[in-house]
Design a binder for these strands. Structure first.
Lengths: 242, 242
DNA sequence: GGGACCCTTGACGCGAGCGTGACGTCTGCG
DNA sequence: CGCAGACGTCACGCTCGCGTCAAGGGTCCC
């Protein structure tokens, strides 16, 4: 019975045909799609030119061994594909060398085939989690709400806690105009301060996200509120600009 | 040392109210937490949007039957949650179809309630073991949750029990920011201490994993929480599309 | 019983970040 | 043109979050 969707695309690099077949059959029956390589050189070629969810890599290989393959993959091909290393040796030293080469997990032969699948699943899950982080973009300004990091262009900015909150609100509503009242309510709730400290915070926020750059993103709409938007990238649909 | 916690979170999908109540009462008395669904559609919604330890699934259901639910859960929602299938029929054919749909175990009605619990326990144990045995890496810091060994660079570090727990949480969530509250809840559960001892533990953890090295990994985000990450290896992905 | 951890608790101090207010600047309206 | 309200700018205390560290007590094992 054909599955509609693959549980994941895997590259298996293993020179022992018997082991490769065993792993391949099991994983395919569990819904994964597989590519095979039996030596390090083809393994590297496949790994660097395709996008796999996981690479299962034997340590000892003809052509290029697993460590070298992994290192080249990271340094030359600049691929962050999760690598699961298979090894017959289990000394602490080997583990460390493997992980140091950029492997993400390792498994000592002989292993339970179900444990292999569990670890593959874990690697895929971990990788997907990173992608699912919520990222807000306005122009070249980027806020990652998971790591709370703010970047513009490609330099990172230091934004204070309340500044972050303001930024998140403005970016979520962008490019709409938000009134000060709405912002205040969202930041301070019902216990808002008696002086409008919002002005100060907007000022400080501007100092960080706009002042060091040529094109401002945070705009004041007099007696209406604020809006965050990249003006030049907006559709000039018969509107007058001054 | 025993901290009170649920024996497991279970989703029970069963249209027969009498059976559902019977199972539910028994399992809750044994310390499990339960969610209920009486038709396949709500069952699928709950199963795909939450993280259960086990799903107990009746084969015949209104809306969507157990097989279809299980298949969709694996293929669309990409959930590997252990599924225990309940069925009145016990032909060999049904078993095969059930297991092929991605079920992990199988129980024929009528069954002994104690056997149900035994199988649930087995599934939870199997899953926890798989999940707990993995390698966590952040920068050059490595935690092997199977052996509880911590290394950085290539020297091994001595981390206290609570330190290990903190480290595991931080590494699993890396590079996300985690609030103190969340960390406290995960470490101490509902019986958390009245002084924030977390500060001390973070301090001691830092003394071990960061102080002896030049580049710190554990970062404080003022009034937001903590994050574990290798700052220099982060690329703010300045990807410009169209 | 004594010693080696390890966890909790509290004290101390520093500094980041926040609220506050004063003052300058701009906009819109009469 | 001038006034008033809205907004930008900026510096000053003060609070509170957090790092730091040591003392006390519990547990386990020799």
């Amino acid at each position: 019975m054909a599955r509609e969707e693959s549980a994941g695309l895997i590259l298996l690099v293993e020179d022992n045909r018997q082991i490769a077949e065993m792993i391949g059959e099991y994983l395919e029956r569990r819904g994964y799609s597989l590519d095979f390589a039996t030596d390090g050189t083809t393994g590297y070629r496949l790994a660097s030119s395709n996008s796999y969810d996981v690479i299962v890599l034997d340590l000892m290989l003809p052509g290029m061994d697993g460590l070298a393959l992994c290192r080249r993959l990271r340094e030359e091909a600049k691929k962050a594909t999760p690598v699961l290393m298979l090894t017959a040796r289990d000394t602490l030293n080997d583990k460390l060398v493997g992980l140091d080469a950029g492997a993400d997990d390792y498994l000592v032969k002989p292993f339970e085939i179900r444990e292999l699948e569990a670890r593959i699943r874990a690697l895929i899950r971990r990788d997907r989690k990173q992608v699912s982080a919520q990222i807000l973009k306005v122009g070249d300004l980027v806020l990652d709400t998971a790591t709370l990091q703010v970047t513009r262009g490609n330099q990172s900015l230091a934004v204070s806690p309340i500044g972050l909150k303001l930024l998140a609100i403005l970016m979520r509503e962008s490019p709409r105009v938000i009134s000060r009242r709405d912002i205040e309510r969202e930041v301070w709730g019902d216990m808002l301060p008696d002086s409008d400290t919002l002005r100060s915070h907007l000022y400080n926020l501007r100092k960080v996200i706009d002042k060091p750059f040529q094109r401002p993103l945070l705009h004041t709409i007099h007696s209406a509120g604020y809006r965050l938007a990249d003006l030049d990238s907006e559709v000039p649909s018969s509107q007058e600009d001054h």
